[in-house]
């Protein structure tokens, strides 16, 4: 067996473990060997039970305090590893904090990290799979030499399933002095109120692209999402143009969504976008260019003007109540 211990970088918010962490724990369990979590928040006790349920026997708690997690958590991991507590594989989510910790640890240990993984296997070698060119090509990359190997995975690559374990044992670990690197301070957290479901958890996602023509027209997308009890999303083009915030972006640079229904309105279907949504169960595309790449993956493709089709669709849905 290529791995005897796997660490999972654990993320949580307000006492609730992030879905990506549960996905990674589930996969780590499937690789065999011992699964342990590494956590940088200050409230490890509150999540020990959830982590245990998904397979972590221990959770190393390195309290980053009010600093960003990157420098302190990477330093705490490196200190464990240098002290002989050495996993074979460390799995991170391709998330805001996951990237910070993995990047810093990679530089600290002078080891490469494989990113954007969608699968991992541990036979003779630890091999990470990722999908490139909008997901039409799969690449398998193996680590050379000995672990610990660092790998980051895209959300929704694995299904989270409980393994029935008891609460993980909380092991407090020291955060070494990180000098200037650790001199970040979170002064305040702003939670943006959203009414509908979260973009990456919604059963229906309605995304708009450049075909909308102007920022004001995005309102149609929000209305349609609301009527379908879904979440509004966006292509990179209109995020770059400043029409909607980055948080709305679906794609390689943004969120990965796998809803039951994905409606792409005025989106041509650049590879950048397809990576984030081609896992949807059903795809509806509305675009006036019949040659738009989005039609090659749509279950229902409407060749038409979004400014004509969507208002009528809204009207029809409202009439149904």
């Amino acid at each position: 067996m290529a791995v005897s211990t796997t660490w999972v970088f654990a993320e949580a918010s307000e006492g609730k473990v992030a879905t990506i962490t549960l996905e990674l724990l589930t996969k780590a369990r499937a690789l065999g060997g011992t699964v342990e979590a590494f956590y940088g928040g200050g409230d490890a006790d509150t999540i020990a039970e959830q982590l245990g349920k998904f397979g972590a026997t221990k959770v190393y708690a390195a309290d980053a305090g009010d600093a960003l997690q990157g420098a302190p958590v990477a330093a705490a991991m490196a200190a464990q590893i240098e002290g002989g507590n050495k996993p074979d594989l460390i799995m991170f989510g391709q998330t805001y904090d996951g990237r910070d910790v993995a990047g810093r640890l990679s530089a600290k240990l002078d080891r490469p990290a494989l990113t954007n993984g969608v699968d991992v296997s541990a036979d003779d070698k630890v091999t990470v799979q990722n999908a490139i060119f909008g997901g039409n090509t799969l690449v398998q990359t193996a680590f050379d030499g000995d672990g610990p190997f660092l790998a980051l995975f895209r959300p929704k690559s694995f299904a989270a399933e409980e393994g029935g374990g008891g609460a993980a044992e909380v092991v407090a670990v020291d955060v070494p002095d990180t000098g200037l690197s650790g001199q970040t301070k979170v002064l305040d957290r702003h939670v943006e109120e959203t009414t509908g479901p979260k973009l990456d958890e919604a059963e229906v996602v309605v995304s708009g692209g450049r075909g909308l023509g102007s920022a004001e027209k995005y309102e149609m997308i929000e209305q349609l999402a609301k009527l379908l009890k879904g979440a509004p999303g966006a292509s990179r083009a209109i995020v770059d143009a400043g029409w909607v915030p980055y948080a709305y972006q679906v794609g390689q640079t943004g969120k990965v969504v796998k809803p039951n229904v994905y409606i792409a309105a005025g989106i041509s279907g650049a590879t950048q976008h397809l990576v984030g949504m081609k896992g949807a169960k059903n795809i509806i595309a509305i675009n006036k260019d019949k040659d738009a790449p989005i039609f090659s993956i749509a279950d229902l493709g409407i060749v038409g003007d979004v400014h004509k089709v969507i208002p009528k669709l809204l009207e029809a849905l409202q009439a149904k109540g």
Binding site: R111, A131, T137, L138, V139, Q140, T141, A142, F295, S296
Partner: peptide, 18 residues
Amino acid sequence: RQEIVDVSPAEERQAGEI
């Protein structure tokens, strides 16, 4: 310090009704 061991096409999603 890593080696790309395989490159293969992914399962294609088919176009549906237009």
